[in-house]
Amino acid sequence: MKTRIAVRNLRLCTKDCLCLYVCPTGATDTEDSIIDISKCTGCGDCADACPGGAISMVPLEYPPQQKKEDSVLTESYRMIKNKATQEKTAAQIAASTDDDALYRLMTAVARSVRLVNEDLLRESGYMLPQSGNTHALLHEWAENPPADDFPVEAARKLLELIPDNDA
């Protein structure tokens, strides 16, 4: 059974096309340059042959997520709350201003703060979609949706698609 698949980064691909020559199943030869994962056997010959380093082998299964200390999480979650408030504040100012410069500045701030917050959350127990933490949230939403208009089907579908590595 294959444990990994080849993916091509189009930004790095210099069209040397060695992947076409070495692929035993023709998986790399497609009209949209995206490697056909149904044909890919995970052998890695294309990644080894690629002179541009544009192909990498992505695992199909991921290891359990690294554990975090409670002492760090407590401080990080305080910061996560602040960042969410900052993002909302900036978005509100952007929505209510007539000044195009302020609109752009606050849109930039809201986007920037969101990225910083995603980074904090990634390092605070939500790095892998396959983590037990992620699954606990998805289960909670699937079983007790927070509101009637919550997209509960999305949560259910994610539970089907993503394995729980910490189970």
């Binding site: 960042k83 909302k88 917050n117 959350l121 990634r122 994610l158 698609l161």
Partner: peptide
């Protein structure tokens, strides 16, 4: 607001793993 950032972070995590549907 925090849950929104948590989920957009997980969306990026899925993108990095080439899981577009997720």
């Amino acid at each position: 607001g925090e849950l929104s950032a948590l989920c957009s972070n997980l969306a990026r995590g899925c993108e990095k793993q080439y899981k577009n549907e997720e």
